[in-house]
Write a protein that binds this DNA or RNA. Structure first.
Lengths: 346, 346
DNA sequence: GTTAGCACTCCCCTCCCGAGAGTGCTAAAC
DNA sequence: GTTTAGCACTCTCGGGAGGGGAGTGCTAAC
């Protein structure tokens, strides 16, 4: 950790006070307020000097000549990186987390869906979760299902994720050949989807013509699954929480954020990047084109089963975010989630 | 259909003009405008008289003394029920629909997800779809899957819908008993979930102790599936479209609508009611507590495979909605969807 | 280096005014 | 009896004008 002397202890304290006050009230904050509340025992004139310096350095901004100061994205960044001791969650929040994880839950996807709601309740922002992708985990089972004029191939992943593809029934496929193909598929398990698919292709090569057609089609479907796993890749909960902030935002901004929540890909990218960080990671406004575009901040953390990464959870909200609470909540939930996932996997 | 004389042909024409003008512009509309555009060949003074009468009857409202008129929910209702000849969709819209259904799509759930987006694109509101519930359709296959410390029971519905439940592995379950139970479950198909469950219970009664435990647990899981099928029951697309309107709405209203979109139950109820109507049905504002609360209107229509109802699609938007386009779009999409579903089911 | 003091800037609120839109009424025209 | 022209009236909206106030930045003293 870079030490605070980079800024000087007092400047750091001022910055911190500005961020916290602004996050609390939403109003630009003046030197007087800081002088009173920061506990620095120093006059507002001194604070003004410090603030001017902080503005010069890019940590604070000035909506107009005679308004108070507002943190810039850089200011939030410094705040997040350097300043506060890790926050303890409030008792009620800890109870909410404990209560949630006290339920018996066996299906990871259900758990994650609940997690997004939990996070949104804890933070008042929108909760996010990326479940483990079936493309990357070992396949527990492949099934072939007769739907009449079509067939379905169905894959169950190690963590209970299910994906399926429907494809046309090959011409003149006999009951018998279908049954055979089905049984062969059932023998494939324990390997990642890519290998499973290779195994199916091998079987196709060995099999009789009729059977080959089904297996090739099934392998095709598995390939598609690998490339573009079923939605949703991104679970979202508590979007309604954004509605409040939304009123202040410009409508174009809101629109884009909502589109991104639906389109998924942008946020998935952001979350995946965040997931590689190990601990809680924070992306603030202009630090990333996407968050910049929608004036938002993202707090995210990965979760694991044992030592294998499974996915990422997080929250999105306005850059004027209560970062401490958000980070503490995401961290705590990710930890409990990893414990649960490890247990489930065992 | 009640005939227009209830209101008088001219009043009806005035009401219609007011609705269409207001929907187009969003501004309260004055007598002058109507006199010019309605083509009634009558002066604004006459229109004023008619408007005053329409207001008296509850079809129009007055934001303040000296503003133009705005339709009430009742006004929209009359408009929808009595007035316009069914609208032809614009060429571009018809092409969008044709293009969408020209894709080869075999999985109904995928289709419906796409449908919500299609509807939202066609109407600029949010698109909705309720897929057939697995609780009500025949089961194609039951599978039991070994997840190590837990088991999963998986049901595939006739239309490709998949649901699953994970439950604890019964104590001391042997590989062999598991295999047996699995094979027995696979023999159950072609009946609705409730009957399938009954069949599983019967098997449990017949089986050996060890096997019984698994089958009972599986039946339990199936019961749960029946009571509360897996999410999502409600597919939503294009919420971002609401962001524009949202800017004018009160933030509490928006919040509630978004919560409802997420909670699903309220909208599911609304859509199910709408589904029983046969053709396109419309719910406007205060006609229903829910739509009233969020100042919204819902346009919905059921879709079928052959003669069995499968689900419902629709759009939600502000009461100030382009009802004709919305109704035409929903009707057209529902028709194509029914054709497709019928074909898939055959 | 800190601070009191103070002039200065600029926002925001309120009040006011005029313009404009739209109404409702009345009395005349059809 | 219905329609319409005319007109007074009401109310919103936009644009200043002006005062208050918050907050700054500078200067000079401590």
């Amino acid at each position: 950790m870079a030490d605070r002397s980079e800024l000087g202890a007092r400047k750091a304290a001022v910055l911190r006070a500005v961020v916290e006050e602004y996050v609390r009230t939403g109003e630009p904050v003046g030197s007087e307020t800081i002088a009173e509340r920061s506990g620095l025992g120093v006059s507002s004139a001194t604070i003004r000097n410090e603030m001017a310096a902080l503005e010069e350095m890019g940590y604070l901004a000035h909506p107009h000549t005679s308004a108070g100061r507002v943190p810039t994205d850089l200011g939030y960044r410094y705040y997040v990186d350097q300043l506060p001791a890790a926050l303890k969650l409030r008792e009620a929040q800890r109870r909410a987390i404990a209560g949630f994880f006290a339920q018996t839950m066996l299906d990871l996807e259900d758990v994650l869906r609940g997690t997004t709601r939990l996070l949104s309740r804890l933070t008042q922002y929108a909760g996010l979760a990326v479940p483990p992708s079936i493309a990357e985990e070992p396949v527990l089972r492949l099934e072939l299902i007769d739907m009449g004029s079509a067939l379905m191939v169905l894959a169950v992943g190690q963590h209970g994720r299910v994906d399926k593809r429907v494809f046309d029934r090959p011409e003149g496929l006999s009951e018998r050949a279908l049954r055979d193909a089905e049984q062969r598929l059932q023998t494939v398990h324990g390997r990642p989807l890519g290998e499973a698919r290779a195994a199916v292709l091998r079987m196709a090569a060995e099999g009789a013509a009729e059977e080959r057609a089904v297996l090739l089609a099934a392998a095709d479907a598995l390939g598609d699954m690998q490339r573009t796993p079923a939605e949703p890749h991104l679970l979202v909960g508590g979007v309604a929480n954004l509605a409040e902030d939304v009123a202040h935002w410009r409508s174009e901004t809101v629109r884009r954020l909502f589109e991104a929540l639906e389109r998924e890909s942008t946020l998935l990218g952001l979350l995946r990047d965040a997931g590689t960080a190990g601990d809680v990671s924070v992306t603030i406004g202009t630090e990333h084109p996407a968050t910049g575009e929608w004036h938002a901040a993202l707090v995210a953390a990965p979760f694991h089963a044992g030592s294998t990464a499974l996915g990422t959870i997080g929250v999105v909200g306005p850059t004027r975010m209560d970062y401490l609470t958000a980070m503490a909540a995401v961290r705590a939930v990710a930890r409990r989630l990893s414990e649960l996932a490890t247990e489930l996997g065992a």
